[in-house]
């Protein structure tokens, strides 16, 4: 609003950034990086949800990496059987039926879960980004084929398919399991990236690159990707949450062998033994639940905090706050 256009047509403000031919491509790129990645992250960080979410995620990452060095591995008889929580420092969260410390079980469950999340989220994000950008940018037959493929993948109900795949292939590597868990969740993301790319494709700066003879991969990497980065980030977080939900479910159902500890396994043990004990034993069930919900709550907070970047209205409101001009006119 308070920009320097003094002619009366308040036209494209981008003109002011590209005036003259002095601005080089790398400067433009830097600017885009700033506009597309850094500024949104800065905006996002100002949101309490993003902050809290990030801290929670960091906590779990520490639990999965440093945790096992600080906490002893769960074994039988770390304490008395079914000791309640907050009684002894050697089993702060209490023990289960065989006297293993719940804290140990929870901490030792974390590394494989993190590996699954990492593999699953990376896989689905990468596949989705490639499929989405290529199909959106190239259009034509490639687009039709990729879109139909995504449609098919999206229609198949995820969990039953995953259970079938796991039952058939019995994977043991956490990375492979992570990939199985997102076997069709990349499709939805690919579709939304595609529509983002479709709108970016027609921007003038992309057209310029095209006319200047840049290759398709170069245009996608230089011009298109920076614009969808924040979007990709959020979806990375969302597929991570999907991996947690899926993996714990599979562990609970007993489909994943080869792991001694998982929140889902703890849940299952606690639940199968629930009938025998009184309500006092609920801690056995609740602590693994807190572990599951905590991590996914962190991810949800993070995603919600960053999501507002895509709501044009909130974004505009923010831009106004940055410019410090009143919310009026045009």
């Amino acid at each position: 609003m308070a920009e320097t256009n003094s002619t009366f047509d308040a036209t494209d403000d981008r003109d002011s950034t590209s005036d003259g031919s002095a601005a080089t491509r790398s400067e433009l790129y830097k600017e885009w990086l700033d506009v597309a990645v850094l500024a949104p992250l800065r905006i996002a960080w100002n949101d309490w949800r993003t902050k809290t979410g990030s801290l929670i995620i960091l906590f779990y990452v520490l639990m999965g990496t440093v945790g096992p060095y600080l906490v002893p591995a769960p074994t039988q008889g770390q304490g008395p059987q079914l000791a309640g929580p907050f009684q002894s420092m050697s089993y702060p969260l209490g023990t289960n039926k065989i006297g293993a410390s719940l804290l140990s079980e929870i901490v030792y469950s974390t590394p494989p879960v993190l590996k699954m999340i990492l593999a699953g989220a990376v896989f689905s994000t990468v596949v989705a980004t490639i499929v989405g950008t290529v199909s959106g940018y190239k259009g034509g037959i490639i687009d039709s084929v990729l879109t139909t493929l995504s449609d098919i993948a999206m229609t198949i109900p995820g969990l039953p398919l995953i259970i079938l795949l796991i039952a058939v292939f019995e994977p043991e590597s956490p990375y492979l399991i992570g990939i199985f868990l997102v076997i069709n969740s990349w499709a939805g993301l690919a579709r939304s990236i595609r529509s983002q790319v479709l709108s970016i494709r027609d921007h003038s700066y992309v057209e310029v690159s095209r006319i200047m003879g840049a290759s398709t991969p170069k245009i996608i990497v230089d011009d298109v990707l920076p614009n969808i980065m924040p979007y990709v980030l959020i979806n990375f977080v969302n597929s991570a949450r999907g991996v947690i939900f899926g993996s714990v479910a599979l562990f609970y159902l007993g489909f994943l062998s080869g792991f001694s500890n998982n929140w889902g396994i703890t849940l299952n043990e606690a639940f199968t033994n629930a009938a025998i004990y009184s309500l006092d034993g609920i801690y056995w069930l609740v602590f693994p639940m807190i572990a599951i919900v905590g991590l996914s709550f962190g991810l949800v907070l993070f995603a919600q905090g960053t999501e507002k970047l895509f709501n044009p209205r909130i974004r505009a409101r923010h831009a106004e706050a940055v410019d410090d001009t009143a919310p009026y006119e045009e």
């Binding site: 308070a2 920009e3 320097t4 256009n5 003094s6 002619t7 410090d324 001009t325 009143a326």
Partner: peptide, 11 residues
């Protein structure tokens, strides 16, 4: 010619 300078800020 455009008018030099910027329109004032309401504050």
């Amino acid at each position: 010619r455009p008018i030099e300078g910027a329109a004032p800020d309401p504050v």
